[in-house]
Design a protein around this nucleic acid. Structure first.
Lengths: 336, 336
DNA sequence: TTGAAAGCGATACCAC
DNA sequence: GTGGTATCGCTTTCAA
């Protein structure tokens, strides 16, 4: 049914070795034969088996990408960037949603290993760094995206979260806000911690402080975020500026403000993080700290493939800079 | 370096056949041997090569999913549904963004064939149905998701777009709107055509008509949609109800209305389609026709895998029902 | 219960 | 230039 290299060889009256040569453009084959064989491959709709090729030691030209949830716009955009770059370089990508569960991560890691992917990109949280050990031991290239695993020496592409937090603080300060609050992701998320650190440092530099009770945590869930913010904004000492560690949370904040009859930005300025498509569709559109998502994905792929090419020595660490994107959810402080 | 079945066999002092048996839980192996071998596999971090297995005729347990753009929330949510179901059944999925370009579709189709995916799900537009022919010829299971290819007999999972359009019209009519307009995707998109047909039919049943100039088309791009709607709403005979063929366009409409100083829903009621996460984050939140995205993905996977199991005869056609989700972007008509 | 051996579809080295 | 053949890691009869 399916044509194999043998079928082509027989049809052309040559050996499979010769056919293999023309498939891979290697060796010396007379122009005539080459054309002949190509024609036959075409005619028989021949597709060389990547699987058989991989078995002989060739790469699979497949990369794995682990994210918590591909339906989350941030990871969807990241996936797109990764896929685009991969395709351009001749690779395809298997995307896996882990829901941040170590058990799932581990299962996927094994699965991808069995399928002999050439490398893996990890954009999902991992509680126990040990589960990556087997990979490294087998020297399968791994790149972490926007995640830190200080105990491991692996390739890393990340953004400067601390700077991001600082930018947010700076923006709010410049608008005259000094009563500030923060909505964080769960505390174990290191990137959130860094963002908050940067935010707080910037405040301190300006002579302000951030009381611990002004920092609340919630899951990335819209509704949960809204509930937290509802409380934050009901405080008598209502903050006039709120920094959220991702766009979804910022949207929850927007909704909370609305529910309380507060105007954004006149009553509260709200600033998000990520700059996913969500930030541009809210009303008012969200001021946010933009992650260079496309670059993040592109570099991860490049690093991986580079390692595949010349069995890299040193783990690379790339840190990209976030940027402030001003839309309409932040404005100058208004005296009350 | 990497342990193979031979390493395990040698270590256990048995033949590779025996090891293979225990890997696959087949044949009759003494409990003692089985336990012994398992222990050794564990100890050596042995991962059987799925590639070698596939070469012997086993499935690859990999499915392909083609969508126009994985960063679009609708497709991201679909991908998540597909992935979830696939994982549950032991498959992983390769996701490919085609940007609706036939050339890309074709390249991916070939690529996935070479990698011997067990089946493909196609959620991307295809202009020339012929490029699917080779697949069907090779009897590779294919399922179209929310796409129609009338000329081909393939599995199809879709929603009743016409009903969706009708639901939208009905809702608007019930609110008292009779001055209506429609924002469509480009006219070659068949699902949009069906939605509009259903919309129009419902109007006609109620004794109203929809003038051709009240139907505008734009790409799925937020900004393009906004521009179209800006024109629609600037008409002296401004419509009080607007049906958009997807949520992104509806958001463009929301923004256009805002820019014109029109209130939603008091001045214009706007209704979208898809019910992606976007619909819930806008302000006001979007009334929209919900696609059962999760079911769509799940059925596509199920159909494919069912065919893999018992080499199905008849192409299946599954049509799911959309539902009206009322939020706050639609309201009763207000006399002016 | 276990093992020997024939593929699966390609690659690559070595002859000719 | 071209062909013969061992090999990759596993599955699967068929014998023993």
């Amino acid at each position: 049914m399916k044509a194999t290299i043998y079928d082509i060889a027989r049809e052309a009256g040559v050996s499979i070795a010769t056919v293999s040569q023309v498939i891979n453009g290697k060796g010396k084959i007379s122009e005539k034969r080459r054309a002949e064989i190509m024609e036959i491959m075409e005619r028989l709709h021949y597709q060389p088996s990547a699987i058989a090729a991989a078995l002989t030691g060739k790469q699979t030209y497949t990369l794995g990408l682990l994210v918590p949830d591909i339906s989350n716009p941030y990871f969807a955009e990241l996936a797109r960037a990764v896929e685009d770059r991969s395709r351009k370089l001749g690779y395809s990508v298997v995307i896996c949603s882990t829901d941040n569960k170590d058990e799932r991560v581990e299962r996927y890691l094994n699965l991808l290993q069995q399928k002999r992917v050439d490398g893996m990109m990890i954009g999902t949280g991992i509680d126990n760094a040990d589960i990556l050990a087997p990979l490294l031991q087998q020297s399968i290239p791994v790149a972490l995206i926007a995640r830190q695993m200080p105990t491991l020496s692996v390739h890393t592409v990340a953004i400067d979260d601390r700077l991001g937090g600082a930018l947010a603080a700076q923006h709010l300060l410049e608008l005259g806000h000094t009563h500030l609050a923060v909505l964080s992701e769960p505390f174990k998320v290191s990137s959130s911690q860094e963002r908050i650190r940067g935010f707080r440092e910037q405040l301190q530099q300006a002579g302000h402080t951030l009381a611990p009770e002004r920092i609340r945590a919630s899951s990335a869930d819209l509704h949960a975020a809204k509930q937290e913010v509802l409380q934050l904004l009901s405080d008598i000492e209502r903050p006039t500026g709120l920094f959220c560690c991702n766009d979804i949370q910022a949207i929850g904040a927007l909704q909370a403000a609305k529910e309380l009859g507060l105007r954004v930005p006149e009553d509260v300025s709200i600033i998000g993080f990520d700059n996913t498509i969500l930030a541009s569709v809210t009303s008012p559109p969200l001021t946010t700290i933009a992650q260079p998502i496309e670059e993040l994905g592109r570099h991860a792929v490049d690093i991986l493939i580079e390692e595949l090419k010349d069995h890299n020595k040193q783990p690379q660490q790339k840190v990209l800079k976030p940027e402030l994107v001003i839309r309409e959810s932040t404005g100058p402080r208004v005296e009350r």
